[in-house]
């Protein structure tokens, strides 16, 4: 019998386990799949999970705990799942404990990207995540915790190129992540910078962190002020796809779907 026919069953099993809150058992099912059918089977299973299910499962594992899923998930599936990472965040949580949320987001992203030594995989993960709006916002959230360092790094990269930068800057946790992006995908790096500094006009104004006192209106034109972590967390929360959008339309005419290109 073709081993492939087992995958839908495994996908369903993993989905049910995750949804029932048993990520441990789900991970066991994934491990079994790897043992029985190999890593590629796991990749296939993860690809067929609904992105919100994948997000739930992955978010249970971070830097501290190892998971086959974080090692093997395809970059595209991971990027899709990132959209749902903020789904469980309430407004009070964002208000009261932004650090906790940011920390968990960092642990997740850092964990997935640096779980493997495969530079090519890291590049693809970065690329896929940053070709989505939510992924760009998620990285911006992380970098907004070290705006000063990011500005320094951005200026450094601008003047010396990504490959010659980063040696002298701070040892903040997010710097390796930022360098990973800047070195592998310059467009992605620019997108993140624009997400943090929406008013940035390259060559026209300087990047600047928002100071504690709130000097919002001063030097308004000379500087592109950074969004705060709080703003970015809210932005990320707002980008979680809602069910309402996905509701099938009740129009009488059946949709052609992809056939509109035929």
């Amino acid at each position: 019998m073709n081993a492939k026919t087992n995958f839908p069953a495994i996908s369903r099993q993993v989905t049910e386990l995750v949804l029932s809150g048993s990520t441990k058992h789900a991970e066991e099912a994934i491990n079994d799949t790897a043992e029985q059918f190999g890593d590629l089977a796991v990749v296939a299973v993860l690809d067929t999970l609904e992105p919100q299910v994948a997000a739930m499962h992955l978010s249970a594992f971070d830097g501290g705990k190892l998971s086959l899923a974080t090692l093997l998930i395809s970059p595209k599936a991971w990027a899709e799942s990132l959209a749902f990472f903020a789904a469980t965040w309430g407004e009070e949580m964002i208000e009261d404990e932004p650090e906790v949320l940011t920390e968990s987001l960092f642990a997740h992203i850092h964990g997935v990207i640096f779980s493997s030594d495969d530079a090519e995989r890291r590049t693809r993960l970065v690329h896929e995540a940053l070709s989505t709006d939510w992924g760009t916002t998620a990285f911006a959230v992380l970098f907004s915790t070290a705006t000063q360092e990011i500005i320094e790094l951005a200026n450094d990269i601008h003047s010396r190129g990504a490959n010659n930068s980063g040696h002298t800057t701070s040892d903040h946790d997010v710097i390796p992540l930022a360098l990973e992006i800047a070195r592998s995908d310059t467009d992605a790096w620019d997108r993140v910078l624009f997400e943090i500094f929406p008013d940035w006009q390259p060559g026209e104004n300087q990047l600047r962190a928002r100071s504690e006192e709130g000097d919002d209106d001063e030097h308004h034109h000379e500087y592109a002020l950074a969004r705060t972590t709080h703003d970015l967390l809210l932005r990320l929360r707002k980008q979680v796809p809602s069910k309402a959008v996905r509701a099938p339309k009740k129009g009488a005419r059946p949709s052609l779907g992809e056939n509109i290109f035929e």
Binding site: S131, T132, D133, G135, T136, K249, G251, S255, E258, F261
Partner: peptide
């Protein structure tokens, strides 16, 4: 209402095939 449903559906399909349906 029907048109807006159809048009937004088409837009998503076009984005998926030709541009990028994951960015604004």
């Amino acid at each position: 209402q029907d048109l807006i449903d159809e048009l937004s559906g088409i837009t998503v399909l076009v984005a998926r095939k030709f541009t990028n349906d994951r960015t604004a």
